[in-house]
Design a protein around this nucleic acid. Sequence first.
DNA 1: CGGGACTTTGAGCTTTCTCAACGATGGTGG
DNA 2: CCACCATCGTTGAGAAAGCTCAAAGTCCCG
Lengths: 254, 254
Amino acid sequence: MRDVPFARRPITINPVNSPTPGQCGDCGARHIGLCDALTDEDLGFLARVAQRVVISAGKTFIDEGTTANHFYDITQGDVRVFKSLADGRRQITGFMGVGHFIGLAVSGQYAFSAEAITDVKLCRFDRGPLLEVFAEFPALERKLLDVATHEMVIAQEQMLLLGRKTAIERVSSFLISWSERSDPYPDGTSKTSTVNLSLPMSRTDLADYLGLTTETVSRSFSQLKRDGLISFTDVHEVTLLKPQRVAALTAGEQ
Amino acid sequence: MRDVPFARRPITINPVNSPTPGQCGDCGARHIGLCDALTDEDLGFLARVAQRVVISAGKTFIDEGTTANHFYDITQGDVRVFKSLADGRRQITGFMGVGHFIGLAVSGQYAFSAEAITDVKLCRFDRGPLLEVFAEFPALERKLLDVATHEMVIAQEQMLLLGRKTAIERVSSFLISWSERSDPYPDGTSKTSTVNLSLPMSRTDLADYLGLTTETVSRSFSQLKRDGLISFTDVHEVTLLKPQRVAALTAGEQ
DNA sequence: CGGGACTTTGAGCTTTCTCAACGATGGTGG
DNA sequence: CCACCATCGTTGAGAAAGCTCAAAGTCCCG
């Protein structure tokens, strides 16, 4: 169910209900991303223009080139955002998890597609009404600017990776940044001991994210295994045995 | 003077004066970028926290990792924005021209460096005061969000280029997007006839932007010349003889 | 006119890709 | 419940795109 081929599927979205402020309290993304910018009371205004939707693994819910009618906030699961060329070549520009905000667009059209990697739950906002809410809560727009700025920083790092790093550096960089994303101790505590990571995406996803082929991703993993830096319990479960030595392979910046 | 080697130079900034609203009227960037979001009267508030600075070709004016004290608006010339690895490998993430806004940062530090390609004039804003102006003019913050969103779209396109396009596709893509940027007729009128482009950056800059080597950039240009699609009057002056055929080589999206 | 930096071209090499086969895994139907 | 099948992942061998190293050509300035 998890690794559905990413061939274009018809877009099917199942609105479940409008979250109430109380429901927002239960939301996995309540205190990250956009929603963290508001107090519980103010969140009601946001909830009023929101719908909860469920997307099953492998399904496309944003199609590049279509009219940008919605914003989305991920409340559960992981998403791949990507662009494609006419001949099918694909570049995944990001893996987005809980709390990530998707849907910023210029000239009214999405410049990217988005698909569920796992089963995904989203908070969906209608564009028009949400823009009105923004006018009322400048904190939201400020937050959105922060989000966009942060995305830009990550995008620049990815350009550096894609333009200038070797295969092993790319894979190592991915492992480290993915571990930092899942890391409850961003102070680096975990870097000294082993780290367990869940990789919900397929090797093809990884290849399309890192600008490589699946074979090269696989060979890089095998090399890291051979060198005793990582181990796999399952194809989608990796352990960083020597996080610092992996980090040393990322060709750190500056 | 134009092609100064891009080895790190000491940062030298020469504040010239604070622009007055009247001076803003003369500014090359008055009706593009950030400043276009304000009326002539409101622009006075912005001008109050601005200083005009001049950077000579080749000079660094933003250094990755340093404290982000300023925002910049380019009023003349071209700039390269880039990230570097410890061993000197460099990825140019963008060429910025008149009207472009530079300086968005998270966690108070620049995540990139910026250097003048040509002699450059900038409008420099102190971070603190500018944020106060933002609070007063939400239109500015909105505009900034638009800018950031647009940057993100371009960044995603660049990731697609870096991760998935061939050398000739990268060079063609660059030529087309550079022509669209300089194109006074964005409706495509110019695509049918020849287009003259000025390329202020060096081949090394192009290589570091496209994730190639200078040799490969040069060979790609030579191939396009051989095929009769482009011609050079000078190393920095290219003519697209068959813009549509060049566009056909970019592996257009979707 | 000469020197230095940049660009172009050539030849050989390396990394990564392509093509192919084999192995593992998970879901399905008998 | 197990066997089968489709899909995904890994490994190997050869091919190719782009890189490295080298040398010659061009241009700008002093």
